[in-house]
Nucleic acid binder design. Structure first.
Lengths: 134, 134
DNA sequence: CAGAAAATGTAGCCATAGCTATATTTATTA
DNA sequence: TAATAAATATAGCTATGGCTACATTTTCTG
């Protein structure tokens, strides 16, 4: 069953990037709405401790997704922006798809959060089509 | 934004159970098809090292999802069976839903694997309805 | 502007999931 | 049945993402 093992690997691979995508999407959102992205806001939005947010931002910085000076707010690198905007696009398609399926905003929002990282391009295209036809 | 932080927590929570569900579903499948579930098969199916599979099975045993004797094959406890069958139900609904959306079997299978753990009861019901109407 | 509050950073802990290398046990086969 | 092969188990490493406690820096405010 080579197929099976392949699909499971994809899921595992998605997991590694999932947290990264959530952070970058959120940072873009904060930059957009508040003009800056701070550790406090990130921690609060994600419902985690500030120390945890700080540690992850350190990783994102090392990996070149994010820039910042000590004690200052966070910015996206070009690389980070690209991922953030792709994530946002995906998120919107999935969210609207769930709304079109007949779900309430809350459920659509919650489920989109989890689903968006596990949707292939093909499936995304189908969802987008479905949205257009509604 | 309390809502947001709540939905993110749900995603994080789903992650913790995700691997567990995949294992239990797979073990049920192996018991069904081969009559027994062995570490080798699990490792092969998931595309991971045997040592990793073994370690996770140890955790599942500690947590009461699985039973086994040293060097013997693995069985599900009642608790484990319950989760395995629920997971399988969910998986089938999502898989069929993706087929009905117009996706090929491979893509439907791969995406279902990732999506199934992030679908709320409400969404699952909508998917099931959609499947019935097709 | 000095002191308090808030934000950020660091250290050190836990659990999970992955790996390789090596030991041990079970199963196969010559 | 004895030797080899296969399966299982253990040890020890990495990385991630949680946490609390505490240190440091920045910001606010009386």
């Amino acid at each position: 069953m080579l197929k099976k093992s392949m699909s499971f690997s994809k899921v595992r691979n998605a997991h590694k990037t999932e947290n990264t995508e959530d952070y970058l999407e959120l940072i873009a959102e904060l930059l957009n709405s508040k003009g800056e992205a701070r550790i406090v806001d990130i921690a609060e939005s994600l419902g985690i401790a500030q120390a945890t947010a700080n540690k992850t931002i350190q990783r994102l910085q090392t990996q070149g997704f994010v820039k910042r000076e000590p004690y200052r707010s966070i910015f996206l690198t070009f690389k980070g922006q690209k991922i953030a905007s792709e994530s946002k696009k995906r998120h919107n398609i999935v969210f609207n798809f769930l709304l079109n399926l007949g779900l309430d905003k809350n459920t659509a929002s919650e489920d989109a959060e989890g689903i968006e990282h596990h949707v292939s391009k093909k499936t995304l295209r189908k969802m987008d089509n479905f949205n257009s036809k509604k």
